[in-house]
């Protein structure tokens, strides 16, 4: 399939996905919905730290301010994980069982691949909106309303360091989302579990709300092969919340893990596609 056709199909898929996800309400309410969930997640961890500081736990106030900034950035960018994992994990179920269009998409000349990519990009846009609004609200709430002087300068972010990390991270997350779609094509029992499971594992092992050094030593090797770990490291380095000396190493690891994830993602998807075709799973409808 020519690249131009692939891009065109992915663009059309993006347009359909965007309409499905956003046109059930007006844009303001949609944006509100996009920000409330990640903001509430952020407030949970922020209040844990604030309560920790108030009961006079182990460290001084500078530690808590620094930690809160570290945590806000990690939590904000975790929105990409949530949006992509949850969006792509449910995609096959919705199109196959609810709207009953998966078989039509499969037999159309466009094939499933650009369709899945296009729909995944909708989750990326939703994630980006969540990240930006969460960061803005965090600064407004913690520094503006609560006067906590958290060292988080949104204007001082090094964009040249931020963008390569974020782009690679998104590619790796889309590749993982691709695998989730593949699993759902050949299964009809996992759609409500997969997205939460994978995002839950990343939340625990990816260094989202605490450094991975605090995990038990036998779990840390798993963290060290997850793209999310290096994505959050590069993002925090671009915000000046981690020493920038490790940036190139983290970016290299991120590129490597992304490449591996991409290869595995495509291979798994192709296998699932072949199996589904052989067993006639593209129009299987399941009800509970």
């Amino acid at each position: 399939m020519a690249v131009a056709d692939f891009v065109k199909s992915a663009g059309e898929s993006f347009r359909v996905g965007w309409k499905i996800e956003s046109n059930w309400t007006d844009p303001v309410l949609f944006a509100t919905y996009q920000v409330i969930r990640p903001l509430a997640s952020l407030l949970i961890v922020a209040f844990i730290v604030i309560i920790g500081a108030s009961v006079g736990a182990s460290a001084n106030s500078a530690f808590y301010s620094q930690y809160l900034a570290w945590l806000i950035v990690g939590n904000a960018f975790y929105a990409f994980v949530l949006q992509i994992m949850l969006g792509m994990a449910i995609l096959v179920h919705v199109d196959r069982t609810r709207y009953e269009v998966l078989k039509n998409i499969y037999i159309s000349p466009g094939t499933l691949h650009p369709y899945v990519i296009g729909r995944g990009l909708v989750s990326v846009v939703n994630g980006a909106v969540s990240v930006i609004l969460t960061l803005l609200f965090s600064v407004a709430i913690f520094n503006g309303l609560l006067h906590m002087n958290i060292p988080l300068n949104l204007l001082g972010v090094n964009l040249l360091m931020l963008f390569p990390g974020v782009i690679l991270g998104i590619i790796s997350l889309l590749a993982i989302g691709y695998m989730l779609c593949a699993v759902n094509i050949v299964s009809n029992r996992m759609e409500f579990i997969l997205g939460d499971s994978v995002s839950g594992i990343f939340f625990l092992l990816g260094g989202v709300i605490f450094p991975i050094a605090l995990l038990p030593s036998y779990v840390q090797p798993i963290s060290n092969v997850l793209p999310i770990t290096f994505l959050l490291n590069t993002v925090r380095e671009s915000f000046g919340l981690l020493p920038t000396g490790d940036y190139m190493t983290d970016l290299a690891y991120l590129a490597l893990t992304t490449l591996v994830t991409l290869i595995v993602g495509i291979a798994v998807f192709r296998l699932a596609e072949q199996r589904a075709k052989k067993l006639g799973l593209f129009d299987r409808k399941s009800e509970y």
Binding site: G52, A53, I209
Partner: peptide, 11 residues
């Protein structure tokens, strides 16, 4: 994740 966070901040 939250239990480890609690430990990290000394609760």
């Amino acid at each position: 994740a939250y239990v480890i966070l609690y430990r990290a901040i000394g609760l």
